[in-house]
């Protein structure tokens, strides 16, 4: 039962940033691989201030919100300036640069060791209650995004992803719509930053490396780019597979590579199946 609850919690905690990312990458077709940079910014600003500098939680939360918003706005600005593939590489570079600074600025971040003893504060201490809070939060986030998706914002985002010039000629502002999309992705990272480290009582930079970014891309592609329901299902299935592989009795030095290979295969098969919807060809008359 505890294992099942753990999987549900992990899936719901992944759901926050991933559904936000799905708005940018899946729905908006923006070649963005810097979601984990937003997560790093949110989580480290929050917990470094709380744990390392003993600042009040609300003040740290405000600072974290500010830095994440600024990074989201920066990413949006960069996406306007650069070619799509250039932005893709830039977002990877930005993520790795932030990670590198965190790993090397040991006096503040404790480097690769991470920050232990993250307090739960007002969050419940029992696993069942924690699961309840996280599930309710995930449901609220899902329906909030679904409502947005069906609003004019969602339609504008799809129109821009299908044909940017035509959409702009109809009065849709790319800057406004894409900026909102990046801010939503940042909000997802922010919520996860509040809930994830207290769950495992540790803030580790290894939870935000490029492998995790690939995991996001894999779930977004496998679930159907832009599909809230599909991506949610993919998160649960893939996390169940990831955690379930531990029970196959494989030695640790084989389990890790098998997990990596199976995720790579899933991503490749998903791209093969979704090649028409991932980056669709422009409609022509």
């Amino acid at each position: 039962m505890d294992f099942l609850l753990h999987i549900i919690i992990m899936a719901c905690l992944t759901l926050f940033p991933l559904l936000g990312y799905n708005i940018v990458f899946g729905k908006g077709k923006i070649l963005h691989f810097g979601q984990e940079a937003q997560s790093l910014m949110a989580v480290y600003t929050l917990w470094v201030l709380v744990v390392q500098f003993q600042q009040p939680f609300l003040l740290a939360l405000l600072a974290s919100l500010l830095t994440t918003t600024m990074l989201s706005l920066l990413l949006a600005q960069l996406s306007f300036r650069l070619e799509p593939d250039g932005f893709g590489v830039m977002s990877i570079a930005l993520h790795l640069a932030v990670l590198s600074i965190i790993l090397n600025w040991q006096s503040v971040t404790r480097g690769a060791l991470g920050i232990p003893r993250i307090p739960r504060g007002i969050l419940p201490s029992s696993l069942e209650r924690y699961a309840l809070v996280v599930v309710l939060g995930a449901i609220a986030w899902y329906f909030f995004l679904r409502r947005l998706e069906r609003s004019s914002f969602g339609r504008n985002l799809v129109a821009l992803s299908e044909h940017e010039w035509h959409a702009e000629s109809l009065g849709i502002s790319r800057k406004k719509v894409h900026t909102i999309a990046f801010l939503l992705a940042g909000t997802g990272s922010m919520i996860s930053a509040i809930l994830f480290p207290p769950y495992i009582f540790l803030l580790s930079p290894l939870d935000y490396n490029f492998q995790h970014m690939i995991f996001f891309v894999m779930c977004a592609v496998a679930g159907g780019p832009g599909s809230l329901r599909g991506v949610t299902l993919a998160i649960f299935l893939i996390i169940f597979l990831r955690e379930g592989l531990r029970f196959m009795g494989l030695p640790a030095d084989i389990l890790g590579p098998v997990q990596i290979m199976s995720f790579g295969l899933i991503l490749f098969v998903a791209v093969c199946v979704r090649r028409d919807t991932l980056f669709p060809k422009q409609r022509t008359v």
């Binding site: 593939d85 893709g88 590579p257 098998v258 990596i260 290979m261 995720f263 295969l265 991503l267 060809k281």
Partner: peptide, 21 residues
């Protein structure tokens, strides 16, 4: 689509990483 290989080679990098390990 010229962006698709960016994603397929990410998948390949994971597969090759696993094989190397």
């Amino acid at each position: 689509h010229r962006f698709l290989p960016l994603v397929t080679t990410i998948a390949l990098s994971m597969i090759l990483d696993g094989v190397l390990l």
